[in-house]
Simulated assay, not measured.
Amino acid sequence: MDPSEDEILTGEIAALGTVVGASGRLTGGVAKRLKKNVHEIDLVIPLPFDDAVKRVADVLGGAGRAVEPVRVEPGGDRWTIRVVVGAGVGGMNPVVVTALVTRDGEGGSAVGLRAAAKEGLIKQRAGEKTAVRLAALLSE
């Protein structure tokens, strides 16, 4: 079973807490209660499906680290790629980015990009900013 965005974000924040000397259990508990900043962008990449999957995997892989292996959906017409990207001040705010690449009948490939980050007292809009930045890279 794939971990949820919340589970991944909570684990990442707990791990950061232990790096700075805080209890991972305490920071993980606090992270569970934080609201998420989520942003979704749909775009079409004018590439054949296999090339589009490679492009998305390369761009997301260059921006962060894979959370789980690339997963092929039944029929081979959908691929899901998920990474964790550092955002905000010093790249310390983890953002879970999920891309769903789908074969598009128009000769291109559709990409649904979703970025989610936990938000504390200071709203950084890390999910929104990360989604916009990665969508721009994918559109180049």
Rank of each mutant, 00 (worst) to 15 (best):
Gly90Thr: 02
Val97Pro: 02
Ile13His: 01
Thr80His: 11
Val97Asn: 05
Ala115Ser: 13
Ala115Val: 09
Val19Ala: 06
Phe49Asp: 02
Gly62Ser: 13
Val84Asp: 04
Ser23Phe: 08
Ala99Glu: 05
Arg25Asp: 02
Val89Tyr: 12
Glu7Pro: 04
Ile41Asp: 02
Leu26Thr: 08
Gly62Gln: 11
Ala31Thr: 02
Ala31Asp: 00
Arg71Lys: 15
Arg25Cys: 00
Val20Gly: 00
Met92Asp: 00
Ser4Pro: 03
Ala52Val: 10
Thr10Met: 03
Val89Ala: 11
Gly120Lys: 04
Ala110Lys: 15
Lys54Leu: 15
Leu26Phe: 13
Ala99Gly: 06
Glu73Lys: 14
Ile122Asn: 00
Gly91Gln: 04
Leu47Arg: 15
Ala57Thr: 14
Ala110Asn: 06
Gly21His: 03
Ile45Lys: 06
Gly90Ala: 14
Val83Glu: 07
Gly127Met: 07
Val44Arg: 13
Thr98Pro: 01
Val30Glu: 00
Gly127Thr: 02
Lys123Cys: 00
Gly21Tyr: 06
Gly76Lys: 12
Asn37Leu: 02
Val96Met: 06
Ala14Phe: 06
Pro46Thr: 01
Gly76Leu: 10
Leu34Lys: 03
Gly28Leu: 05
Leu47Ala: 12
Ala14Arg: 04
Ala99Gln: 09
Asp77Val: 14
Gly108Ala: 10
Gly29Cys: 03
Ala135Pro: 09
Ala99Leu: 09
Glu106Ala: 15
Gly91Lys: 09
Val30Gln: 02
Val111Asp: 02
Ala66Gly: 09
Ser4Asn: 03
Val97Arg: 08
Gly86Asn: 08
Met1Pro: 07
Leu113Thr: 06
Ala135Gly: 08
Gly107Arg: 12
Val20Ser: 03
Val132Ile: 14
Thr27Arg: 07
Val56Arg: 12
Thr80Met: 11
Lys54Asn: 13
Gly107Leu: 11
Ile122Ala: 03
Val38Ile: 12
Asp2Leu: 14
Glu128Gly: 06
Glu5His: 13
Thr80Ala: 10
Arg65Glu: 08
Gly88Thr: 06
Lys35Thr: 05
Leu26Asn: 00
Gly107Val: 09
Ser4Tyr: 03
Gly86Phe: 12
Ala87Phe: 09
Glu140Leu: 13
Leu26His: 07
Val83Arg: 09
Gly105Trp: 06
Leu16Ala: 05
Glu140Val: 13
Ala116Lys: 06
Ser23Pro: 02
Glu73Tyr: 14
Val53Phe: 13
Lys36Tyr: 00
Gly105Ile: 08
Gly112Arg: 15
Val111Trp: 05
Ala52Tyr: 10
Glu73Gln: 14
Met92Val: 10
Val95Asn: 01
Asp2Trp: 12
Asp51Met: 15
Asp51Thr: 14
Thr98Gln: 10
Gly62His: 12
Ala116Pro: 00
Leu26Gly: 00
Gly64Trp: 13
Ala131Gly: 04
Ser139Leu: 13
Thr102Tyr: 04
Pro3Cys: 05
Ala87Val: 09
Ser4Val: 03
Val72Leu: 15
Val96Gln: 05
Val20Pro: 00
Arg33Ala: 04
Val44Ile: 12
Val83Trp: 07
Gly76Thr: 08
Leu60Asn: 05
Glu140Gln: 15
Gly64Asn: 07
Ala117Tyr: 05
Val70Met: 15
Arg133Phe: 11
Pro3Ile: 09
Arg82Ile: 08
Ala110Asp: 03
Thr18Arg: 14
Gly17Ala: 01
Gly88Ile: 10
Gly107Cys: 09
